[in-house]
């Protein structure tokens, strides 16, 4: 039987993407399906008995759990504060780097350094810096004569600020890099034309730079929102738990406590799927906007 050229071509295309599809199937799709099935059982790893199907009971228990609602609330607050700080700071630094600065490349390396560190190490280092008794931050605050020294790691009213500062320090370099790349792709002709027409720097930023960066900014914000919901490493390195009075109880910490505390893999899978649904909901505006575009 003769195969047409078009059919051969199509087969070739699929053969080329087959390895990637196989990897996706085994490393993403299969674990998703397995995890979803597990979330509907009462499987506890420490138990010798066979897991039983319990339907949506795990999901109902999680959604009714006060601690889950607290962690959801804390995650939303953290997401809003940290993403806003990262984008504003990242944009400011990227705009600065976009100018013809002396030693710009060295500056860029310095700015990107935090991103090279592992989140756990960042958490541990900041834990030492922010220690209320022998941390260097409070030492200098006392030196400059500040009377009331904040307890960054032990006072619930400072927890969100502490987390936001540390997360911003860690993730702003990536945001800066993305926006800087976007700025570099904006043609100088637009800026020069605007200058010739008498536009000020502020007008150029609001009327030319920001609109041209808008699509990139949406993607950057989406990535940061999704990853901030998953934040765990720096929180656990800083607080070893949900923080003072559970003020640092975010979804990642809640999930970890469910799993490592009780080895209840059924319930932990349910939590992870709920987090997946939340992430998908947050991505909808971006997907719709892309479709419109």
């Amino acid at each position: 039987m003769q195969i047409s050229y078009r059919t051969k071509n199509n087969i070739c295309k699929y053969m080329f993407i087959l390895p990637a599809l196989l990897i996706l199937l085994f490393s993403v799709v299969y674990p998703w399906i397995w995890s979803f099935c597990t979330s509907m059982t009462n499987w506890r790893l420490t138990s010798a008995s066979v897991p039983e199907f319990i339907g949506l009971k795990n999901y109902i228990d999680v959604l009714k759990d006060d601690k889950f609602l607290l962690s959801l609330r804390n995650s939303i607050i953290f997401m809003l504060l940290s993403v806003m700080a990262q984008v504003v700071l990242g944009l400011a630094i990227a705009l600065l780097l976009n100018r013809r600065l002396f030693a710009r490349r060295i500056l860029m390396i310095g700015i990107l350094l935090p991103y090279m560190l592992t989140p756990t190490m960042v958490g541990l280092v900041w834990k030492m810096l922010l220690h209320s008794n022998w941390g260097i931050v409070n030492y200098y605050l006392r030196t400059i004569g500040l009377n009331t020294i904040p307890d960054w790691l032990g006072d619930p009213s400072f927890t969100m600020l502490t987390l936001t500062v540390v997360a911003t320090w860690l993730h702003t370099p990536w945001v800066t890099l993305m926006i800087f790349a976007g700025l570099q792709s904006i043609s100088d002709e637009y800026i020069e034309a605007a200058k010739v027409d008498g536009a000020s720097s502020v007008q150029i930023f609001w009327r030319i730079t920001l609109p041209m960066l808008s699509k990139l900014l949406v993607i950057v914000i989406l990535f940061r929102v999704v990853f901030s919901f998953r934040e765990f490493d720096i929180i656990y390195s800083l607080f070893n738990s949900g923080g003072p009075g559970n003020s640092a109880m975010l979804l990642g910490v809640y999930l970890y406590q469910i799993f490592s505390g009780s080895w209840d893999i059924g319930r932990a899978s349910a939590v992870s799927f709920i987090m997946l649904v939340i992430t998908i909901i947050l991505s909808i505006p971006v997907v719709l906007r892309k479709k419109e575009g």
Binding site: H131, S132, N133, D151, G154, N240
Partner: peptide, 11 residues
Amino acid sequence: MPNPMSWTYDD
């Protein structure tokens, strides 16, 4: 005593 909510055995 130092703030117990941020105190560890290393401290």
